[in-house]
Design a protein around this nucleic acid. Structure first.
Lengths: 196, 196
DNA sequence: GGCTCCGCGTGATGTAGATCAATCCCATTT
DNA sequence: AAATGGGATTGATCTACATCACGCGGAGCC
């Protein structure tokens, strides 16, 4: 249950066994069934989530009722609505399991206590968030400059594991295109690939 | 020159005078003329930049030659190509002064030394990057779900100072729309405002 | 067996915003 | 005062993608 967290943390910072024991005590394991929610729009995001098994998605729903996926979180990934988690404001996001999953949850007070007692975690989260920011900036620039086809091709290159496990219409929603467009685009890619 | 940096840092963490003196010694002040570049595509981003006066922009140029603005950085803001700065890989971004400006530059080694000698800066940058990530995620979701008009209205609400100082076609490029679309949209807003 | 839910594919049609091409304005420069 | 150059506007046309509408097949359930 905690081995994955341990190895992920140890990739970026070095901590002692005793420190990791303390760390463990601050998380609550949680099992999730497919389609179960960890957070729904309007609620305050009480937890930051580390996925140990399965696959979650975080997404918003716009005024027209269309879903927009911010993130897929597979095993070893973190997810949360950071805004709501840190401000205590109601969240605009939903976090939902796409498969039966297992996660480790940490509350805001426990998280603060973790940073205070093991300052190296300040560094760990800085690095984590930094990488996430770099990736999000990349995605933003791509969203503004690339065609639907290139966005899809980048996606399957970058997240091959997700392509296998996530339904197509959710990939479309992550890319900011409709399921129909993705479907057509895949047909053309398949047709073009063999003849080209 | 350093007062702005001091007050910005003090907003998030508490540091002593001696610590801030050390901090100061790690930055190099730099004056920039309008249109001068601090970073050009293909170069490695050697500095992280704190703007003390004026206004910078960071942007990419896509295959079709179209510019896409990632960020405007006014007084008190940080900017950099974080990816290039941390990996040493060539940058895809350009950073350019839009007005005569002044900035404080810190190199990677100095930055590492700052974090090591004053661990509270680890926390400072974590908070900074975290807020930046939250804002970028918001912008990404907005880019995917809102119309050109609403993106513009959000922008002027969020960055009224930039609206005054940045040419319209650059705001368009930040929003991911063309200057023509922005121009038309503004006309309609101006027309609608008085009659509505 | 039939029913319902989901995900996927596909055709016909609609549209926000892009592209192309002028024109105009205004502040500098010479 | 003419020339230059950056910025904004405006009209005509184009297009990538959305929308609408429908049908198909498989998985789970009664």
């Amino acid at each position: 249950m905690f081995e994955l967290l341990h190895s992920k943390v140890a990739e970026k910072i070095s901590i002692t066994e005793a420190e990791f024991d303390l760390c463990k005590s601050l998380f609550t394991p949680k099992k999730l069934r497919k389609k179960q929610f960890l957070l729904q729009e309007g609620e305050v995001s009480r937890y930051t989530i580390f996925v140990t098994k399965g696959l979650l998605r975080s997404y918003t729903i716009d005024d027209k009722g269309v879903e927009h996926i911010l993130q897929f979180a597979l095993e070893g990934w973190w997810t949360a609505d950071m805004y709501s988690f840190f401000t205590g404001e109601p969240s605009l996001f939903n976090i939902e399991a796409l498969e039966d999953s297992e996660a480790l949850l940490i509350t805001r007070p426990s998280w603060e206590s973790l940073l205070q007692q093991i300052p190296a975690f300040e560094r760990y989260f800085r690095i984590l968030i930094q990488n996430s920011l770099i990736a999000t900036q990349r995605r933003l620039m791509e969203t503004m400059s690339e065609t639907a086809e290139r966005k899809y091709l980048n996606f399957i290159k970058l997240y091959p594991a997700s392509v296998q496990r996530v339904p197509q219409h959710m990939i479309a929603s992550y890319l900011g295109i409709t399921r129909e467009t993705l479907s057509r685009l895949r047909r053309e890619l398949a047709a073009g690939k063999s003849s080209a």
